[in-house]
Nucleic acid binder design. Structure first.
Length: 749
RNA sequence: UGGGGAUUCGCCAAGUGGUAAGGCACUAGCUUUUGGUGCUAGCAUUCAUAGGUUCGAAUCCUAUAUCCCCAUCCA
């Protein structure tokens, strides 16, 4: 974990190292208005995972500030999910509603500071006054109310003297802010509604932007991690805490990309729609991407956590392939779960030369799973095999039973087809077969070679079970809504057959039905009289893939076309400057272009030019290095002067330093404002150009990396850069790169 | 359209001036009494595009393109 950590952990580590926080405190802050889904699992893994990794703590906090949508059934679901995933939130679950009194006090404080006011505009007016993304808004006439009036009004709002919507409390920030969120955001609204925890005590409820940052602060949260859509809210987050003067180790917000998985939907609204429209059986329908759904389906917490680890954390919107999740559950179950024989679509086989019965001893686990355990499988004259496992006219590469091809009954004997019995419609009704007595698994002396072993059950002893075959809920890779539902997402097989030990011995609740997939005894509907198994996931099936791929047409991969826009044209002054740069000073067009278009840059350049007559070198450093600093700062805020830049360039020009060192010195100048010559002197950064000094270092590097020398000699010329880099590194960047390049190339010839 | 983010293989994702990690998917071969598993090998001369700086650029500079978020009294 020390290597390749995600950007959040990098931030946490830096903050810990710098002493910004003594301890890491995170929180998982869901709103209890829906069941948690696998996207929440990602957030849970991040927040609790980071806390675990750095010996900190993670709170589970219900963000229950909207009484009209929230409910206690959802807080139970949330707790279940976190617990099931194996995380510990400590003593108590936290609730934002517990902080309502404190939050109220903070609001009063803000009013007293003149930073918040009671607005009495209607909802529509507020929207109108807010302006648009391109137009500034205008402030409400109520914004001028006195502190006393605001205090009085706010207190009466709290007491319930006004109707819903009559007044709101707003922060007084900036109605023309480019960030729409900062246009006097609402802090409190009146809601005469029953809160599932706070009851009827409050007539006003805080808004997310006010409650969240303060709740984090109250709980001593250090890193407030949320999803990308809250990036714009960060300004309010900081404003509230800063304005209230909440300084000591106050929390900071960091955003990551939420999880998207193809062939599924993740928004609470769409999930609720699925439940309400009864397209699924409930929040825990095994096809749902809810944690309850995966759990009911048979997924393990380990597999979900592993999935969250594998997909990583970053800031780019992404859509993870559902195959990645399926891999995780297969991978987990492979080493854990007993293998048993089941037949979903039975075809009767009568073994004509077999009399009586016997019990075959068979291990539950294959040779590559180091677990103990076995059961007896009854064998008799009448058995069932999978309908798929016999074909009269097989395609090439078909390994199973055919009129001419024998097959092994898994753990049992090899059988040969003797006769195919058909019903009046021409469907295969039964196979008459013969077994080879000397071919029993483990004691095979028959010498018969078969290409595969198939699952089977004994007709008399097999148990009938219900099997629910689940497939992806949506047929579309990026489903919009209910219209994209996969009509075959659930297939119920009422009369599947299974070997008796599964039912009588119950060795586990999850199984691999050999050659079919992983299955889970449904935790709700399973009874001894009527066992029910859910399909968790199929096995990888390269045969099915092969047969399918011959039919499906490869979809054309459309390469995206790059559209190139045009650069805005220059005005007259810029054009004149550009011409002067290119013709008189011999700057290249690109550099001249950048300089001419930027007034600050060109004037800075002019100043340096008056001190040193080296137009090209100066232009390069101004355009490529100084420009970066000037992006965020004004000229007078800069730590360095034009004269110092001229000084720096002079040293490059006369060969005192290399341009690599120049960049290093420039960084130093940006930080400390020190003089370049002084830096060179202090750190002894004078360039080393004598081959006699460089040569031994190269020899050393070459001696240390025999592998790479061989690779280079084999034709990997990219490695030249590697050697040059190594030499430069050992000299602290001081070696003249040109000389090093030549020398290395020569030595490696 | 203003502001804020993002862009590295089919899908995720490391990398922050010196050899383009890893996982999934895919393709071969070996192993196998599961067409499973395991093992081995192959999968980016190139990092959205075009220029520039540099001995050397995914990384620094400039411009352009594309996608996502923001105008709920939701969170």
């Amino acid at each position: 974990m020390s290597k390749n950590k995600d950007f959040l952990r990098t931030i946490v580590e830096e903050d810990l190292k710098s002493g910004k926080y003594k301890e890491v405190v995170t929180r998982f802050p869901p709103e209890p208005n829906g069941f948690p889904h696998i996207g929440h699992a990602k957030s849970i893994c991040i927040n609790f995972g980071i806390a675990d990794d750095y010996q900190g703590h993670c709170n589970l906090r219900m963000d229950d500030t909207n009484p009209t949508t929230e409910d206690t059934q959802y807080v139970e679901a949330l707790k279940d999910a976190v617990e099931w995933l194996g995380f510990d939130w400590g003593e108590n679950v936290k609730f934002t509603s517990d902080y309502f009194p404190k939050l109220y006090d903070y609001a009063v404080e803000l009013i007293k500071m003149g930073e918040a006011y009671v607005d009495s505009l209607s909802e529509d007016e507020i929207r109108e006054y807010r302006g648009t993304v391109t137009q500034a808004g205008k402030r409400s006439k109520y914004a001028d109310r006195s502190v006393e009036e605001n205090l009085d009004l706010f207190q009466r709002m709290k007491k319930g003297e006004f109707k819903d919507g009559e007044h709101v409390l707003r922060a007084k920030i900036d109605m023309s802010a480019a960030n729409m969120k900062m246009r006097d955001p609402l802090l409190y609204r009146i809601r005469h509604a029953h809160h599932f925890r706070a009851g009827d005590e409050w007539a006003i409820y805080p808004m997310y932007d006010f409650a969240h940052c303060l709740s984090d602060y109250i709980e001593g949260v250090s890193h407030s991690i949320c999803t990308l859509e809250f990036e714009n809210n960060r300004d309010i987050y900081d404003w509230v805490l800063d304005t209230l003067g909440l300084k000591s180790a106050r929390p900071h917000q960091h955003e990551f990309a939420r999880l998207g998985i193809n062939y599924t939907v993740m928004s609470k609204r769409k999930l609720l729609e699925l439940v309400n429209s009864e397209k699924v059986s409930g929040w825990d329908d095994p096809r749902m991407p809810t944690i309850a759904g995966y759990r009911r389906r048979g997924y393990t917490p380990e597999s979900i956590i592993n999935f969250c680890d594998q997909i990583g954390v970053a800031k780019a919107n992404s859509m993870v392939d559902v195959a990645q999740l399926e891999f995780c559950i297969r991978d987990d179950l492979n080493t854990k779960v007993p293998r048993v024989l089941a037949v979903l679509d039975p075809l009767k086989v009568t073994i004509q030369n077999y009399e009586g019965t016997e019990e075959i001893d068979a291990p539950y686990y294959p040779h590559d799973v180091p677990k103990e355990g076995s059961r007896k499988i009854p064998f008799s004259r009448e058995i069932y095999i999978e309908r798929d496992d016999f074909i009269e006219n097989p395609p090439k590469d078909y390994f199973r039973l055919t009129p001419d091809q024998a097959v092994r009954l898994r753990h049992g004997y090899i059988i040969t087809c003797k006769e195919v019995i058909k019903d009046p419609d021409g469907n295969i009704a039964e196979i008459k077969a013969e077994y080879h007595p000397d071919s029993k698994s483990g004691h095979d002396t028959s010498g018969i070679k078969v290409k595969s072993a198939i699952q089977w059950v004994s007709a008399k002893e097999a148990k009938t079970v219900e099997v629910r075959l689940y497939d992806r809920l949506f047929k579309d890779e990026a489903p919009e809504g209910l219209e994209d539902i996969n009509p075959d997402s659930l297939r119920v097989i009422k009369n599947a057959l299974i070997e008796p030990a599964v039912i009588t011995e119950k060795p586990d609740e999850r199984f691999q039905f050999e050659r079919l997939g992983y299955f889970y005894a449904d935790p709700l509907d399973y009874t001894d009289e009527k066992p029910v198994f859910n399909k968790i996931v199929g096995l990888k099936d390269s045969w099915a893939k092969k047969t399918k791929s011959t039919q499906s047409v490869p979809k054309p991969q459309v390469k995206k076309v790059q559209v190139d826009g045009e650069e805005a044209s220059m005005d007259e002054v810029q054009q004149a400057l550009f011409d002067m740069y290119t013709s008189e000073l011999k700057l290249n067009a690109e550099v001249a272009n950048i300089l001419a278009r930027d007034e600050h840059l060109s004037s800075f350049y002019k100043e340096t030019l008056s001190l040193l007559n080296s137009p090209v070198s100066l232009a390069n450093i101004v355009v490529n290095e100084v420009a970066r600093e000037l992006k965020e700062k004004q000229v007078d805020e800069l730590n360095f002067s034009a004269a110092q830049i001229a000084e720096l360039v002079k040293m490059i020009d006369d060969g005192t330093i290399s341009s690599k060192i120049a960049k290093q010195i420039f960084e130093e100048m940006v930080q400390t404002g020190a003089n370049p010559t002084q830096i060179v002197e202090d750190k002894g950064l004078v360039q080393i150009s004598e081959p006699s000094k460089i040569s031994p270092i190269i020899d050393e590097v070459i001696a240390k990396n025999p592998d790479n020398v061989a690779k280079f000699k084999a034709g990997n010329t990219k490695l030249l850069g590697f050697f040059v880099g190594q030499v430069l590194k050992t000299t602290g960047g001081k070696a003249n790169p040109k000389v090093v390049n030549e020398l290395v190339a020569e030595k490696l010839k």
